[in-house]
Design a protein around this nucleic acid. Structure first.
Lengths: 347, 347
DNA sequence: AGGACCGCTGACAACGGTGTCAGTTTATCC
DNA sequence: GGATAAACTGACACCGTTGTCAGCGGTCCT
């Protein structure tokens, strides 16, 4: 540990008054211009903009927040995820939109099943103008109620329950999963193992439902022993796979409810000396980077995460700024991505 | 897309004046109490605290910011990472400390090599009290200068250059890497391939240096053809491995400068039909979750990322609050984690 | 021509805290 | 016991914006 001494200084920033003086108008007019309000003559507006540029004026968010009762910031609440690339993409999408609209993004990571009070404290401390809730927290009634009670707008990403009282955005997990199972059926598989996701996530049941629907649509009976629980993480996927390997009549294909679990299945197969994909086809969901990091690379279903996140942020900001007063539920299509982890059985 | 209509309301929050009235003191005294300032009699302090609790008072950050010329928020600047888990852990560490000290965390993800103006705009728009800079942005002189010029305190995480003018925190990449190579030498390997990291990161060269040092300390000559470039991402690791496989005298072990690249090496080996670890030992660096998701699991070097991040945040906040006026450089030890991807050659 | 109305602008009071400084207690010391 | 210092406490200006409302000049009716 080495040490040195610092240097310090802080240049004065231009305020709205400086701009007003320079443009020869009142501060209120400057305020109108920077807030894109109506009733400013184009010539005046231009003069003000000019002064803003010359002085490199940036409005003070604290003052704006104090006077205008808003903070120009939104919060993103998420549980520590297993698949971090997921949150990473959510974050990118939300951030881009915030950036474009001049909003700041406040992070609120949380442990599993955060206490209501912690979230409420976050709200009262930061006074964000709105919140983006990721799954599975977006489904917690205590949290949605707390937000509603405080008049804080929010959107849910990938909620399980589609409640028309709220705005939400998510992928069509059901259809995506159905397509994936159909792909395996098309290849000729008849015994397909299915590893479920964390039951706290709505996506988990939607993906299971899609799978079951595909089977039933083809007139197949569902073998309960092939449907096993998981938690969306690598370890649970691996454990579940070993469980399936122990069955008398081993499945020729396994669908995991996300890529991390599918990666677990692949490692389990390698441990058990099962050849991929000859003896076992494996498929995941999400098309996360992991899907390309396994051997063989994973067949999976791509959901447009970044797009979903941007859309969520857009809807939230519309709400925050009062440009919208009806709730919507937006659903994005998923796309099957076939790679080498799936093939015809025995092939 | 379905639609519904909303409901709205916003309960009034207690202000410092309400608390003052209730406690029978002036607002200034309340201010003293909530800011932990000296010169308040314990009895008075208690009375105020009581009122705070009863009214569930939370100071308005905008008002505090405006009057006190600070925002109680710090920014985290990072480039979109290849290894997501890395940033996730950084984020966790920094957030915990922020949380504990009542600071908010503002995110500023950026593309590769962000423009200086973008960062400056972030500063003037958000007016964060300080910044955490992750590698490789922390090494950019234009950015450190811009921050210094504006009097915004910052800490660097894992900088390449150890400049005593600034505060930084990072792992001992050199020693960690040296230990790793020594491990392979101890196993009996004599031809060890080395895949470098993204040259923009200081860690990349430190890890190479550690490797070279280990070789030289054992009196081995360095074969330049075994040292190949990489970018810290899976793909570059895979490509580099294929390159090494093409050498006339193939190495019996490969050290990749991080786990993602090591995962690439493993897949490359599988593609090339090379048995692991019998024909090839593979090692990574970071001990990211990836290290456990490969088959065989990766021998790697663990750096205490969360701890590094918390320490960085602590140092930053000390600086922000004026509790510190000398710069330090803190280094954390790494630990070799031996798993099954390394063995004696031919074993 | 006179009044009503509209588009545009500015004066001024908030918003909810902190900093300054002066005033009032309380403790300390001869 | 009185002087002096130290520990407390409060009045009030101010931070940089937005919201409210009144005023001004010009158009459009009637």
């Amino acid at each position: 540990m080495q040490e040195t001494t610092p240097s310090g200084r802080t240049p004065a920033r231009a305020t709205i008054r400086d701009v007003a003086r320079r443009a020869g108008v009142s501060i209120k007019t400057v305020s109108r211009v920077i807030n894109h309000e109506a009733n400013v003559r184009p010539a005046t507006r231009e003069r003000v903009m000019e002064a803003v540029r010359e002085l490199q004026y940036e409005p003070n968010p604290a003052a704006r927040g104090l006077a205008g009762r808003r903070t120009f910031s939104i919060g993103l609440l998420y549980e520590n995820p297993h698949e971090f690339s997921y949150i990473q993409q959510i974050l990118d999408g939300v951030f881009d939109v915030c950036q474009a609209h001049g909003y700041a993004l406040l992070l609120r990571p949380s442990s599993e099943n955060p206490a209501t009070e912690d979230i409420v404290r976050f709200l009262t401390q930061t006074r964000v103008d709105g919140m983006v809730l990721t799954a599975p927290i977006g489904d917690r009634p205590d949290i949605t109620d707390a937000l509603t009670e405080r008049g804080v707008p929010f959107v849910q990403i990938s909620p399980g329950i589609t409640d028309t009282r709220w705005t939400s955005v998510g992928p069509d997990d059901f259809a995506g999963s159905r397509t994936l199972t159909e792909h395996l059926l098309d290849l000729g598989h008849t015994r397909i193992g299915f590893i479920q996701g964390d039951p706290r996530h709505g996506a988990a049941s939607a993906r299971l439902d899609g799978h079951l629907r595909a089977l039933r649509d083809r007139g197949m009976t569902v073998d309960e022993s092939l449907i096993v629980p998981g938690l969306f993480d690598f370890e649970s996927g691996k454990a579940a796979a070993h469980g399936l390997f122990g069955l008398a009549d081993r499945p020729t294909a396994i669908v995991a409810s996300n890529d991390d679990m599918a990666a677990g299945v692949i490692v389990a197969a390698q441990e058990a000396g099962i050849a991929l994909p000859a003896e076992l086809s494996v498929a995941g969901f999400d098309d996360s980077p992991t899907a390309l990091h396994t051997w063989p690379p994973l067949t999976t279903v791509r959901q447009p995460i970044v797009e979903i996140a941007s859309q969520a942020a857009e809807l939230l900001l519309e709400w925050v700024r009062g440009e919208r007063d009806v709730h919507v539920r937006k659903t994005f299509d998923c796309r099957l991505v076939v790679r080498r982890s799936t093939s015809a059985p025995g092939e």
